[in-house]
């Protein structure tokens, strides 16, 4: 599809704050995703990226703030968010382990079908029709991500990379307008990562906006129209990928060059130095340490 300049927002998060007791994991974050866009969300570990996703999808009820999808404010209930049109994947893969690959995708169709218990028990023609249509759509999706030949395998038996792909297919089955991906390439090898890039572009071309969390900067650079950076719960920069990558606050956040109140910069430098001085030394050093203790 064309990356239209008509920038109608799909997702608008305004002033999202998430506190866990004394810890503020997300501080007053605003974020907009427009139609046809791929937006990246990066930040060091513990920055609050996943927590922000959970606030968007209703898994957490934000302490403050509003999330709206295509102009409508979303209630913080996961199933309502999904039926509104936002689908997601999880950082730590959460497939239905003992269901087959096909069944996993069929569960993703839940919000787009409505056969209840009665129609399941009576098995009228409407039920059969809906069921075959669902299966066909699910198989199409499996073909799209290249897992059609494993439709009858248990999802727990798939290799890691395929499990991540299956999570994407399951999310797509809900026919979303916005797809949230939490570290879709974690644990993948270079080829798989590249294939995932292609996959995400193909998804965007179907008119689905994408918001993606990733630690792999090259992946983000290739993929994203716009990148937002979260550090300690705060959005510090947002802009085109190249601009963000060059921003010194971002570099500071990642590399630990001392900036206001950030502790441990010296230790980090020490660690880096130790890493530089080859593996053998390190090995003997740790073994010595071990005996010393």
């Amino acid at each position: 599809m064309t990356t239209t300049t008509s920038t109608s927002p799909v997702l608008e998060a305004r002033g999202v704050i998430m506190r866990f007791g004394g810890l503020t994991a997300v501080r007053d974050v605003d974020l907009t995703v427009n139609t046809g866009e791929i937006v990246g969300l990066i930040g060091p570990n513990g920055a609050g990226k996943t927590t922000f996703f959970n606030c968007l999808t209703g898994l957490y009820v934000p302490t403050e703030g509003k999330v709206s999808y295509k102009g409508k404010v979303l209630p913080p209930k996961p199933h309502l968010v999904t039926s509104a049109g936002i689908a997601r994947t999880f950082q730590n893969i959460r497939l239905f382990a003992n269901m087959t690959v096909l069944e996993n995708v069929l569960v993703g169709r839940h919000t787009r079908t409505k056969e209840g218990l009665w129609s399941a028990l009576l098995r009228g023609p409407g039920f059969r029709k809906a069921e075959t249509a669902s299966r066909e759509r699910a198989m199409e999706l499996l073909e799209f991500i290249g897992l059609a030949h494993k439709a009858d395998h248990l999802s727990r038996n798939l290799p890691y990379g395929e499990q991540r792909k299956l999570e994407i297919a399951r999310a797509l089955a809900s026919e979303p307008g916005l797809l949230l991906l939490d570290e879709p390439t974690a644990g993948m090898n270079p080829q798989e990562t590249r294939a995932t890039e292609e996959l995400i572009f193909a998804i965007r071309d179907q008119g689905i906006a994408v918001l993606v969390i990733e630690h792999d900067i090259r992946f983000i650079m290739n993929l994203c129209d716009r990148v937002a950076v979260l550090v300690q719960g705060e959005k510090i920069v947002e802009g085109p990928a190249e601009v963000v990558q060059a921003d010194e606050r971002v570099i500071a956040a990642y590399l630990g060059t001392p900036f206001e109140g950030s502790p441990g910069a010296e230790e980090l430098a020490e660690v880096e130095a130790a890493e530089a001085t080859a593996g053998d030394d390190a090995e003997s050093a740790t073994s010595k340490e071990g005996t010393a203790q």
Partner: peptide, 24 residues
């Protein structure tokens, strides 16, 4: 059926099931 699959999905992972649009 659709309802049976959502039962099994809830058994397997309730959080993921609700994130797939199932009203747990």
């Amino acid at each position: 059926s659709r309802i049976g699959r959502s039962w099994i999905a809830i058994r397997e992972d309730e959080t993921a099931a609700t994130a797939m649009g199932i009203n747990g």
